[in-house]
Every structure is written in structure tokens, then in C-alpha cells.
Design a protein around this nucleic acid. Structure first.
Lengths: 237, 237
DNA sequence: TGTACATCAGTGAACGCGCGTTCACTGATGTAC
DNA sequence: TGTACATCAGTGAACGCGCGTTCACTGATGTAC
């Protein structure tokens, strides 16, 4: 296993985290390993943020199995990465939905949803980067010598589109109630999303910058780009 | 200079771009190779956007020398990467300064500067990603087995800080002339920068998204976050 | 004008590493008779 | 109740690859005498 976690955790030690051979799953439960593999790969990506640098061997080490065992559950490396991305997108979506559902009015929903999105990115900066920080490799230059440059990674576009749809809907509702000046909700939502993405990714790229409180920036964005005047609890965060 | 000047300069062509052995530099001119190395590394990064994936062997191949020759000019890989980043930061800074200097009034300067910044990022998306898209690898977990995960790459913070200083100054001047509501210029500039970064990096990360024209988004940002009412040539771009 | 020598700009082979993937295999567990 | 067999969840060794870096070297060019 890769990360020698100084103190061995007493119970989970032999299953997941220790150096010795892990206990084999009972018959019919082989797919348990699949979940462990996804969790381990996700763990590594959450630590490194480097999707290209993820290696099957590191995943196998983390789980405590031989590397070829991964091929019992995934046809290749891309399939494992895809599974990790799907799980993370679902988590992000669930977190945002939960935050929205706890607020009664459209303005509260919009603000809670954006803050939840930002909280996810702040809590899991590397995971967020893995989800949204990808530049599809372009030219490839028909140069077979450098063809080991992998193509664009699998992107579950549906989940991302769904999340964006939520934002458009939230903006629309605010406009419907008159809480916010009427405009093209898709255009406004796009501006908000890109602005949030920018402050989130720069915060994690340049942590040494003297960043102001996150909620201040988020509220500046909502006020400037949506027209939200409602800024509850100004001393918050 | 680092940035590939599209048309191959007639004489340098065989020295840089071909497969055969390149002509050796005359004595006293050994540092020419240094420039070629930086240009080749920059070229590769502009194609891949992947700073971790850059290999000295690929750079040597591109230039047409043996890999160890790189060590005549750079102590290691990090030093080469640092040189590339410095050159790109300088280019970005120069482009923005030039755009600013061509406008007479503060509002025009602010808009031209931000558009130049965006144009740079759009023209060289991978280079832009290399400059600003980095997440410093966090934990490292004192695990010698995975220590091949390189530490944070060399970042010339001065150049970035200078560019941001320009933006703060531009916003301040607009406020001074009353073209824009008075506020904390550093706070406003930070909001603008992060918003621009967000729309730029998402545009290059998710090119399949139905993006609106760049200038529309930039003007939305300047209007919403700075209060710029001046939107010249609305049908532009 | 000739020659020994220093310097400079590189080269080629090799090191030890980690990687994705393939292959033939093992050995515990369940099942049919 | 015993036994042959199938299945399932893995393993260990090996493949060919690219990587950063080190090392001893080469051979053209300049310089001192």
C-alpha cells in the first residue's frame, strides 16, 4: 500500500490500509473489490489532483491487491477513472441539491446552492480540479512517438449539464418572483458559474494569495452578476 | 523567444524542426541552444498543457540533440520549466501592457487590458493553463515510495503580481474619474480577475459547451462587477 | 608557419525506476451426484 | 456422507515502454609558443 500511515488504524488495518495481504472477498461478493478500487483511486486523485499521474499500480498498492486484479473489474485504466468521475459528479450534485432543498424561498435556494457548490470545491480541491480542470489534449501532431499522450479523459457530461440546469432554474425562479432584475437566465447563470469556477480554481491554485473570505466573493458575484441584494449574515464565514 | 512564431524562419528551420542531426553551434554561441530548448519546451507545453507530462527526452527530440546535452544549460528539469514559465509570463505581461497603452482613457484601458488578457488565454489555452492552472500537490504524506510526485512547480510570483497590480490600477483610475462607482479597487479587481479566469479556463476545458461570444461575457463581467456602463461596438466579435 | 594543447559543445550507453497490460497459474469455496 | 468438479477471486512473473540523470567519451575549434 502506498501511504504508510504511521499509526495503523486498529480495525480497518488488515482490510484496506496495511502492508500484508488483504482478506479475499467471499464468492458472490467480488464486486466489493470494485467499490474499494474506485474509493482508492478517488482517494489518490483527491490527494494529487493529477488524473494523468494516477497509476493502476498505486491503486492496487492502496487497496492491497496485485495490480492485475484490477482487470477483473475494469477493462482498462480509463474505465476506472470514468467510474471515479461519475461518483464525484454524483456527490457534487447531491450536495448541491440537499442545500437547495433546505431553503424555502428562491433567493435562499440560489445562494445556498452556490455556496454548497463552493464548499464542495473548497473541501475537495483536487477532486474539483479533476472534474472541471481538464484541458482536452489538442493536436497530437500525428506523431506516433508522442502518441502516449492520452486523449481527452472520459467526461460524464450529463451530470455537469444537470448541475448547470439547476443553476439556470434557480436564477429563473428568482427572476419570476421579482427578487432579481429580469434577464436571460441562462446567460446570467453561465456568468455566475464561470465566475465561481474562477475564484474556486484560483484559490486552490494560488493558496498563498491573500484571499478574502469565500462568502464575500460569492456574494459579490451574486450581487454583481445576478442582482441579488439579499446578503444575510454579513459577518458569516 | 519561446512562443512559436507560426511561420518557420527560413534559416532556423533545419536547426530546430527536422529529424536529422542539427548543426553544432560555434564556440561562444553555446547559449543559443538554451534558447532553443526553452522554445521547444514551450512548444510542447503549448500543445499538451501538461507540465507533469513534459519530458526532457521529448524536448531533446524536438530540438534534435541528445538528451544529456540539456544538462549543459539547465541543472535539471525544474529549471527548464521555470525558464519557460518566466518567458510566458513576460509575454502575457507585454501583451496586456501594449493593449493598455494604446487606449487614451481609463475605461478604454481597462477594457482593452482585460480583453488582451482574455485574447492571450484564448490564443494559447495550454500555455495559460500552465501558468495559472496549477494545483500545488498537497500532502506528500512523507511517503518515500510515492515521492516521485513532484512538489509544487516553480512559480514566478512577481510577474503574476505585477499583472494583477496593473488591473487594480486600472480599476482605481476608472473610479478616480468617476466613470465607475467608487469601491475598494483591490476587491473589485480581484473579483474581475477570478471571473475572467473562470470563463477562460472553462472555455478551454469544455470546448463543446455552447459558449456565447467572449466579448459578451467580458462585458457582462465588467458591467456587473466593476459597474462599467461603456460597451462600445455591441455587435463586435 | 607549424604544432601542442586547452576548451567548448556536444554524444552514446547505461543506471534504476514506474508504468499498463498480458499470461499462465493457484487455491479456496460451492455444487452435483 | 463423500467426492469429483466447476467457479470464482484472485496472484506472480514477465513484456516492452519512457522516464531523469550520470558517466566517460569525442571531435571540432581556438590559442600559446
Amino acid at each position: 500500500m502506498s501511504v504508510n500511515c504511521s499509526g495503523p488504524p486498529p480495525e480497518a488495518a488488515e482490510a484496506v490500509a496495511s502492508v500484508g495481504r488483504r482478506a479475499r472477498n467471499p464468492q458472490g461478493q467480488g464486486s466489493r473489490l470494485r467499490a474499494e478500487l474506485v474509493a482508492a483511486a478517488d482517494d489518490i486523485l483527491a490527494r494529487t489532483g493529477d488524473i494523468e499521474g494516477l497509476s493502476l499500480r498505486a491503486v492496487a498498492r492502496e487497496v492491497g491487491i496485485a495490480t492485475p486484479s484490477i482487470y477483473l473489474h475494469f477493462p482498462d485504466k480509463r474505465a476506472l477513472v470514468r467510474a471515479v468521475l461519475e461518483a464525484r459528479f454524483q456527490q457534487l450534485s447531491a450536495v448541491v441539491q440537499a442545500a437547495i432543498s433546505q431553503q424555502p424561498d428562491p433567493v435562499g435556494k440560489l445562494r445556498a446552492g452556490t455556496l454548497a457548490y463552493c464548499q464542495f470545491a473548497t473541501d475537495h480541491p483536487h477532486a474539483y480540479r479533476v472534474l472541471f480542470g481538464r484541458v482536452p489534449v489538442a493536436v497530437s501532431r500525428d506523431d506516433s512517438a508522442s502518441s502516449h499522450v492520452t486523449a481527452a479523459p472520459p467526461q460524464p457530461p450529463a451530470a455537469g449539464a444537470d448541475a448547470f440546469g439547476l443553476l439556470v432554474e434557480g436564477v429563473q425562479r428568482c427572476m419570476d418572483t421579482g427578487a432579481v432584475p429580469a434577464a436571460d437566465p441562462a446567460r446570467v447563470a453561465l456568468n455566475v458559474w464561470t465566475a465561481l469556477h474562477g475564484l474556486l480554481s484560483l484559490r486552490s491554485s494560488i493558496p498563498q494569495f491573500p484571499w478574502p473570505p469565500l462568502t464575500q466573493q460569492v456574494d459579490d458575484v451574486l450581487r454583481g452578476l445576478v442582482g441579488l441584494r439579499h446578503n444575510p449574515a454579513p459577518e458569516q464565514e
